[in-house]
Simulated scan of single mutants.
Amino acid sequence: MLRHLRPTLVLLAALTLVTGLAYPLAMTGIAGALFPAQAQGSLVRNPDGTLVGSALIGQAFTSERYFHGRPSATVAPDPADASKTVAAPYNAANSGGANLGPTNPALIDRVKADVAALKAENPSDPVPQDLVTTSGSGLDPDVSPEAALFQVPRVARARGLSEDAVRALVAGQVQEPSLGVLGERRVNVLALNRALDAQGR
Rank of each mutant, 00 (worst) to 15 (best):
A60N: 07
G49W: 03
R70H: 05
N91H: 00
G49D: 09
P71F: 08
A93Y: 06
T134Q: 11
A120Y: 04
T85W: 04
Q59A: 09
D114R: 13
D78F: 10
T85H: 03
R110Q: 14
P123A: 10
D48S: 05
V52N: 02
A120T: 05
V44A: 04
T133D: 14
R110L: 08
A116S: 11
L56W: 11
N91P: 01
P47E: 03
G49N: 04
T103W: 07
A116W: 00
R65G: 01
I108N: 02
S54Q: 08
T62V: 13
V132R: 12
S95I: 06
G96Q: 03
R70M: 02
G53V: 00
A39W: 02
E64D: 15
V127R: 10
K84M: 13
V115A: 00
L107C: 08
A93D: 11
R65P: 00
T74Q: 11
L131R: 09
D114E: 15
F61H: 04
A120V: 02
A55T: 05
G49R: 06
R65V: 00
V52I: 03
P89T: 01
L107Q: 12
G101L: 01
A117M: 06
D109A: 15
L118I: 14
V86E: 01
S124E: 15
K84P: 15
A98K: 01
T74Y: 12
Y90Q: 08
L118V: 09
Y90S: 03
A80N: 13
N122E: 13
T74E: 03
S83A: 11
P105V: 01
H68C: 02
G49Q: 11
A76L: 03
A82S: 15
L118C: 13
S95A: 15
E121Q: 15
A82I: 07
N94H: 08
D81M: 04
S72V: 08
Q129F: 15
R65T: 07
G41N: 03
R110K: 13
S42F: 07
Q129W: 09
D114A: 15
A93T: 02
T133V: 13
L107V: 09
L56M: 13
P123V: 13
D125Y: 14
F35K: 13
A116L: 01
G53Y: 00
S54W: 02
D125E: 14
V52R: 00
S124T: 15
L118S: 12
N94K: 02
P128N: 06
Y66G: 01
N46A: 10
T133I: 04
V75I: 11
N122H: 11
